[in-house]
Design a protein around this nucleic acid. Structure first.
Length: 468
RNA sequence: GCCCCCAUCGUCUAGUGGCCUAGGACACCACCCUUUCAAGGUGGCGGCACGGGUUCGAAUCCCGUUGGGGGUGCCA
């Protein structure tokens, strides 16, 4: 048996893949790669009915998108916690037989009443020495030993917990099903997990799990509790308020490389003065010991900036390939009007102008639409210039005879601009609106060239008719 | 209430007792470049929460305060 480390990643089926979970997955994966270890995926729910094949496939796809490929020899799973219920129960019975657990018949109401009576919250250990046998409705509780539990954590150092502040927690429910704390430990033992990297919110649970490891006669794994991701209110990212679904960022055209890179800079930083680094460098340099202790704000703006950088790093061919899902399907233009050759020419012009890939359609739609929508404000702002009709007319006249290349097209407008003593920045505006419908967009002359003589003239003439 | 964690520019971070008049990135501002918008270039704004120690010397170590976060389920 190999002694290579085994890192488990254990998301629970919540219906989507949380960006915080994605970061933890990345941590585990980077570590597995560097150490030659294994990334163990376990779908975490003790209740089988909550597992969904769709969700499991979704998470495998999302992991693959991040570069954590289930085909890799260093990837193991998915395992399903709910499939191990018998093992969990057996461990619980063993704990009972060796005296580390006991049965309790108190209801939630009774526990609360007792707590109120003795002025303390939580369960008071009432059934500890009552020697109850198992029975319907009875829960099995762990007998928390006296003393101190020290959690040795790679990120936080040694964290001490006084055992008398930890109540005798439930191992088996009244219906006999196992609780996750127990299930977790048993599965980790079963799957020979050596390293647990998870979010900080689990730290208070850790002494309980560590006591279970000890009671089961095993050495606990190496723990690492990494800081949570928070929103601008400094609260843990929540599904209700925040955009936390990894899939959503993927669908909006955030590049996987940008997402992984950005996620890794939350709570950690590569050496040197730049945060934009290839994954190989991250694998080389990432250390749990270097991870920050405080929560990090998930800044969508910075993610967009990272993504912009990664989009610009793409070769033209790569960019065109990456853009495909965002120019096909439900689009502002009729599908049959889309032209690959045209898009190939346009692509380099828009590559520096987009944040996410989903920005593409609104930037290129005028190439594929017969009558692109004209922005009312843009029209009002540009077509009221006293030279508007003149420039449109001059442009149309010039284009009819010009050579159809970038220089010639430009010289037509240059000629008009010079003759009027105006700035090109001003005279191009009405032309741009006539051609594209907007005041902003890809470079004008290139756009006209790509659009072609007939269509360009048609739009110019149409605009001219409206202005006069 | 009790337990635990945390605290460097607005944000993400570098910093592990002298290299710190605290470095970088995002955002913001200005200028340059420029056919719009971007991209790019240059520069600017801006921070060690507070109070005590320890030390020749503290952002860095200790204590306290304040502030934030998490946990405290027969949820995971």
């Amino acid at each position: 048996m190999s002694d290579a480390p085994r890192f488990r990643f254990a998301p629970s089926p919540t219906g989507f893949f949380h960006v915080g979970g994605a970061r933890t997955a990345l941590y585990n994966w980077a570590l597995a790669l560097r150490t030659g270890g294994t990334f163990v995926l376990r779908i975490e729910d003790t209740d089988e009915s909550r597992n969904s094949p769709e969700w499991t496939q979704g998470i495998i796809d999302a992991l693959a998108w991040l570069g954590i490929n289930s085909d890799s020899p260093q990837f193991e799973g998915p395992y399903f916690q709910s499939a191990n219920a018998e093992l969990h129960k057996a461990a619980a019975m063993r704990l009972w037989q060796q005296g580390d657990a006991y049965w309790c018949d108190l209801t939630a109401e009774q526990i609360q009443a007792r707590a109120k009576e003795n002025g303390k919250q939580g369960y008071d250990g009432y059934s500890r020495d009552r020697g109850l046998e198992p029975g319907p409705g009875r829960v099995l509780r762990f007998r928390v030993p006296a003393g101190v539990t020290v959690v040795r954590d790679l990120v936080r150092g040694d964290v001490e917990f006084q055992n008398d502040t930890i109540e005798d927690f439930v191992l088996l429910r009244g219906n006999g099903s196992p609780m996750f704390l127990l299930a977790n430990v048993v599965d980790d033992i079963e799957m020979r997990v050596t390293n647990v990297v998870r979010a900080e919110e689990h730290l208070p649970n850790t002494p309980k799990q560590q006591m279970l490891w000890a009671a089961l006669g095993r050495t606990p794994p190496v723990w690492a509790h990494v800081p949570v991701l928070v929103n601008e209110q400094r609260k843990k990212l929540s599904k209700r308020r925040d955009k936390v679904a990894l899939e959503q960022y993927r669908d909006e055209g955030i590049l996987a490389a940008a997402m992984t890179n950005y996620l890794m800079t939350l709570g950690w930083a590569p050496s040197g003065d730049t945060e934009i680094v290839p994954w190989s460098r991250i694998v080389e340099e990432f250390r749990l010991e270097d991870v920050n202790h405080s929560p990090a704000f998930f800044d969508v703006k910075k993610l967009a900036a990272f993504n912009g950088d990664y989009v610009r790093m793409l070769s033209p061919a790569e960019f065109i390939a990456a853009a495909q899902p965002f120019v096909r399907g439900e689009m502002p233009w009729p599908a049959e009007r889309f032209d690959d050759a045209v898009f190939a020419q346009v692509a380099p012009l828009i590559q520096t102008r987009i944040g996410a890939l989903s920005d593409i359609p609104s930037m290129v739609d005028f190439f594929f639409l017969t009558d692109p929508p004209v922005d009312a404000d843009a029209w009002a702002k540009t077509m009221t210039a006293d030279f508007a009709a003149d420039v449109l007319g001059a442009m149309a006249d010039g284009l009819r005879t010009a050579e159809w290349d970038h220089e010639s097209i430009k010289s037509v407008l240059d000629g008009f601009t010079e003759s009027r003593g105006l700035k090109l920045g001003k005279t191009q505006a009405p032309v741009r609106v006539a051609i594209t419908g907007r005041t902003v967009g890809p470079p004008l002359f290139e756009s006209i060239e790509i659009l072609g003589r007939d269509e360009s003239l048609r739009r110019l003439d149409a605009a001219l008719a409206k202005v006069r």
